[in-house]
Amino acid sequence: MTRLMKHRLFWPVFSLLALIVINTIARPQFIKITMRDGEFYGALIDILRNCAPLMLVALGMTLVIATRGIDLSVGAVMAVSGAVTLTIIDGSSSPGSTSTVLVAILAGIGVSLVLGLWNGFLVAVLDIQPIIATLVLMLAGRGVALLITDGFITTVNSEPLNFVATGYLFALPFALFIWLAAAAAIAIVERRTALGVLTEAVGINPEASRLAGVRSRGIILGAYVASGTLAGIAGIIYSSNIRAADANAAGDLIELYAILAVVLGGTSLMGGKFTIAGTVIGVLIIQTLDSTILFLGVSSAQSPVFFAIVVVIVVLIQSPRVHQWGRALTGGFRTRPGTEVRNDAEVTA
């Protein structure tokens, strides 16, 4: 079992390490972590901090993808939750008080949860294709966020809010603890309860699962609620970081990066088997790549070219055809019968 895990995560881990090594060779200060005023600083720390919004969104996306779904609305949900939270803080008499910020954050998360529930309702209860169902909110969500902020970028200066994205706890960024906690919570719930295997069952075949007595609807609904809620938290971290609610820019293209992270981590978009650890590594790869591109002096506007190349390479590595080529190439040197016959056995049946 452990060997299988290792096998599944081998390529993601290898890619991440390779990226780090390349970066370190190119600029040795990349690996350096310095201590200032009892807080750690460095490029690696930045990566761990800055990846928080993407990480949360990607974790939720993993659950949704495991149920054979997809959540395109995460960026819009981020915009809405940021708008709700900052509008409340902006409108309150004491924007600096911790309790105000807490209430505002809870309201933002609450709204996101409802939005997630809405997606889940469309997919699980009305049986609408996930891509289409979440497209609705993807389109309409930003409109709602713009209405909440009256079409302006709401800027807020609030110490407790700033702490969410930029604060430090135990010498490490607070945002790091948020995503670590989320990842750990999901991993524990999925693996220590039966949620993991039941989610996979639903993702592989919803009807067969229903016949086996699995509460498919509840599980699918839960995945979208989790995705919405996590996106909401991500939206708050994002807003906290720029100290503003920007309904247009918040979470722009994040759904695509999140999906990329999930796929990079080794979870198939076809649903079923999924891996939380893989997604975490996938996000770290994307964030490290982002930092690399920035370092190379490429304009951030041009960085999508690199991501396009990464996507192509990753999907090619996963593609059965390339595996065949690889086998044909290495087959001449060493033959290892029995490893690849599994899939073919199905064909004969």
Binding site: A194, L198, E200, A201, E207, A208, S209, L211, A212, G213
Partner: peptide, 29 residues
């Protein structure tokens, strides 16, 4: 194929699936 077996899950997971579903998510076997 379409309403029975979950082809990517293991034999063990397939056998225990319904029992697990009946026990509920939080009472894992």
């Amino acid at each position: 194929r379409t309403e029975g077996i979950l082809s990517e899950l293991s034999v063990q997971e397939n056998i225990t699936l319904a029992l697990q579903a009946e026990r509920g998510v939080f009472r894992r076997i």
